[in-house]
Simulated scan of single mutants.
Amino acid sequence: MSVLTRQPVSAGAGAGATRPRRRPRRQPLPYLLLVPSLVVIGVLLLWPLGQVVVMSFYKLDNVRQLRGQRPWPWAGLANYAEILADPFFRTVLRNTVLFAAANVLLTMILGTLVGLLLNRLGRRMATFVGSCVMLAWATPALTGAIVWKWLFDDTSGLVTWLFNALPDGLSTALFGRSDWTGYGWFNSPLLFFAILTLVVVWHSFPFIAVSVLAGLKSVPGELHEAARVDGASAWRVFWSVTFPLLRPVFGILIVLSTIWDFKVFTQQYVLAGGTQDRPTFMLSIYSYAAAFSPPPKYGLGAAIAVILTVILLVVTGLYVRMVLRQEENS
Rank of each mutant, 00 (worst) to 15 (best):
M1K: 09
L4R: 14
L4P: 01
T5I: 12
R6I: 01
S10K: 06
A11T: 13
G12Y: 00
R21K: 15
R23L: 11
P24A: 13
R26E: 05
Q27N: 15
V40R: 14
L44M: 14
L44F: 15
L45C: 09
P48L: 06
L49R: 07
G50T: 10
G50V: 06
S56C: 03
S56L: 06
L60F: 02
D61L: 07
N62D: 15
L66V: 00
R67L: 08
R67N: 02
W72D: 00
L77Q: 02
L77Y: 05
A78S: 07
E82I: 01
A85L: 05
P87C: 05
F88T: 03
F88H: 09
F88K: 12
T91M: 07
L93E: 01
L93F: 13
T96N: 15
A100L: 07
T107C: 07
M108H: 07
I109Y: 07
T112Q: 08
L116M: 14
L118N: 09
R123W: 05
A126L: 03
F128A: 14
C132M: 12
M134W: 09
L142K: 11
G144T: 01
K149G: 14
D153A: 14
T155M: 06
A165S: 15
A165C: 08
L166H: 10
D168K: 15
L174R: 15
G184F: 01
P189H: 06
F192A: 01
L196I: 00
L198T: 02
S204K: 13
S204W: 10
A209M: 02
A209Q: 02
S211K: 03
K217L: 10
K217I: 08
P220T: 13
A226Y: 08
R228E: 11
R228D: 05
R228A: 14
S233N: 08
A234T: 13
F238P: 11
W239Q: 11
P244S: 13
G251W: 01
L253Y: 04
D261S: 14
V264E: 03
Y269P: 02
V270M: 04
G274V: 03
D277M: 02
D277V: 03
D277W: 03
M282E: 01
A289M: 13
A289S: 15
K297W: 03
K297C: 00
K297S: 06
Y298R: 10
L300P: 06
G301C: 11
L312T: 00
V314K: 12
V314Q: 13
V314L: 15
G317W: 02
M322F: 10
V323I: 12
S330K: 14
